[in-house]
Simulated scan of single mutants.
Amino acid sequence: MTELTIAGENFSLHAHKAMYWKKHDALLLADLHLGKVNHFRKAGIPVPSKANDRNLEMLIELLQQVKPARLICLGDLFHSHYNQEWEVFGEVIKHFSHVSFELVLGNHDIMSELQYTRKGIIVHDELVLDQFILTHHPMEEIDAAQYNMAGHVHPGVHLRGKGRQAITLPCFYFGKNHALLPAFGMFTGLARIQPKKDDRVFAIVEDKVIDVSILGSDR
């Protein structure tokens, strides 16, 4: 994992598109979009069903490696209305019964409150921890003493090589007073960010997190 300090707090960035906050023993991630594959397949879109398995495999790997006390999802935990994938996720929650599963509601989190309650998931509209405000949508305005961490955007950084090579990679983005977490789930797409001079950007390449803040990203 890659270590960094943001707004005076220490975090670790994981190549599985998650952040670990040691002070709160919390694993932060965003935009799992569980059930999205089932939603597409129900609509007749031929998406491979193994994508569901890979999302949960990565989540289980993270929980086993990091062993957090809390898992906090910054929105869009589940993609749409209830389907069987929700029950599969419930088995993961049951297995890691010592972990507090928490959700900051996103625009795709549209299931009834009952579904979250029956799985033991703690739901927040937003979550304030110390000077940090955890939300799904990035906040447009924030007090100078606070720092906003959000999902929703699915950030990607566009990098160019010395020749004509170019690639857009999922990334962690840290600005002056706000951060964007990469989308954890598959089939989520990427939105190219436009980093400013002093912003920190960490691209995810296979099983590595690479600081590309000073590289020639296409801005």
Rank of each mutant, 00 (worst) to 15 (best):
N55W: 00
K42H: 05
G75P: 13
M58H: 06
I133H: 08
Q65V: 06
D130H: 11
D109N: 11
H136A: 12
V47T: 09
V123Y: 02
K119M: 15
L74N: 10
E102P: 08
K119V: 04
S100F: 01
C73A: 14
H98N: 09
H136W: 15
F132P: 04
E57M: 01
R70L: 02
S80M: 04
I72K: 07
L63T: 01
R118Y: 12
G90A: 07
M58S: 05
H95V: 11
F132E: 04
N55T: 04
D130E: 14
I60D: 08
P48D: 00
L56M: 04
I122V: 13
S80H: 12
P46F: 05
N107G: 01
I122D: 10
I60G: 01
Y82F: 15
K67E: 12
R118P: 09
S112G: 14
E91L: 14
V99R: 10
P138E: 10
V123N: 06
V128C: 06
L63R: 04
L56R: 01
V66R: 09
L127G: 02
L114R: 11
E126A: 12
M58P: 00
E57Y: 05
L62G: 02
V128Y: 00
L56I: 05
D109E: 12
V66M: 03
Q84R: 06
F78I: 05
G90N: 02
L114C: 10
H136T: 09
T135Y: 11
P46E: 02
K119S: 10
P46M: 00
H136M: 13
L127M: 11
V92F: 10
S100Q: 10
E91P: 07
G44F: 01
E140R: 05
R54C: 03
L127R: 08
V66G: 01
D125F: 12
L127P: 07
E113P: 09
E61K: 04
M111C: 15
N107H: 05
E140Y: 03
V123H: 02
N83R: 03
L59P: 03
H98I: 04
R70T: 04
E57R: 03
H124E: 04
A69Y: 09
I72N: 06
M111W: 03
P68I: 03
L103G: 06
F89Q: 02
M58K: 09
E113L: 06
V99E: 00
H137C: 08
H108G: 14
E91C: 10
V104A: 06
N52W: 12
Q115E: 15
D109W: 07
Q84T: 08
L105M: 10
E113Y: 03
H79T: 13
